[in-house]
Design a protein around this nucleic acid. Structure first.
Lengths: 140, 140
DNA sequence: TATATACCCGACTAAAATAGTCAAGTATTG
DNA sequence: CAATACTTGACTATTTTAGTCGGGTATATA
């Protein structure tokens, strides 16, 4: 079980912004250098963050991105949502009229994965971007 | 984020055994039919479960597998361990002398993923195989 | 003792997901 | 008008996943 890099980089980049941001825009180039993330990849990520109203952009020289909300108002769950990264623990398809394993009944472990999913989602619901900065004062 | 099928099938198969088992061995063929899991794949999975002392086997006609411990003594964490399925949330390499992102410092989100990892592991530590059966009396 | 059943084990592979890159822009500032 | 920086979709190499395949070995029962 692993989280994908896009989600991880998104959190990393937004944490970076929370830490370094004042009012003026931060360029992806700066984030790229500080966090060692490919610039081209960051662009892809920020496009989604923008579409989901987590950041806004300013073009041109001295342009860049700014957080729309305060770091202590940004839940990690929002970030994952923006990147379409869902905590998906099930093998079975909830939407389907069929149950799991192609049968019409739910599989024996169905409830378990549901529980786990909530367990993890709760974690991300309760975690704010600002929490990361507090713990990591001494980190780049 | 997703769990792999091997782990899911392992839990499913062991839950099946907990439910249907008395003293006599259960063949993979039966589990395969009841849970709609490929027989060949189950063999692969049970090899690992056996090596890790979760089940023991009897060969030949009427052979099969038996749980070594009681379902209420088998933690889900043990099952994942048997399949080398680790809850891996980090992008950085803990073992390396370097930190994350090829730098010597830990990345800004390092602690976060550590926390999540513990959060999930705790869930699996506290969950027993027997718990699945209780909830799923009415399931196959 | 023959035969069917069922475990044992390593190697292989098609398909999907991941982690990016690339090309070709557009907008803004200095 | 040049440099900077965001915008967007398409493309692709690599890795992982989710299995299959082939060729065993051991045992029970007829």
């Amino acid at each position: 079980m692993k989280l994908n890099t896009k989600s991880r980089y998104a959190v990393m980049a937004l944490a970076d912004m929370s830490k370094f941001s004042r009012k003026k825009p931060i360029s992806l180039r700066d984030i790229s250098l500080r966090q060692s993330i490919s610039l081209l990849y960051l662009e892809q990520i920020f496009l989604k963050l923008k579409k989901n109203n987590l950041v806004k952009s300013t073009r041109g020289t001295n342009g860049g991105y700014v957080l729309i909300k305060d770091p202590n108002e940004i839940k990690l769950s929002e970030i994952f949502l923006a990147l379409d990264e869902k905590v998906k623990t099930l093998g079975c398809n909830k939407e389907s009229k069929k149950g799991c394993n192609g049968k019409f009944t739910k599989c024996i472990t169905h409830n378990l994965w549901d529980e786990l999913e909530s367990h993890i989602n709760t974690f991300f619901e309760n975690k704010k971007l600002s929490d990361l900065i507090k713990i990591n004062q001494n980190r780049i």
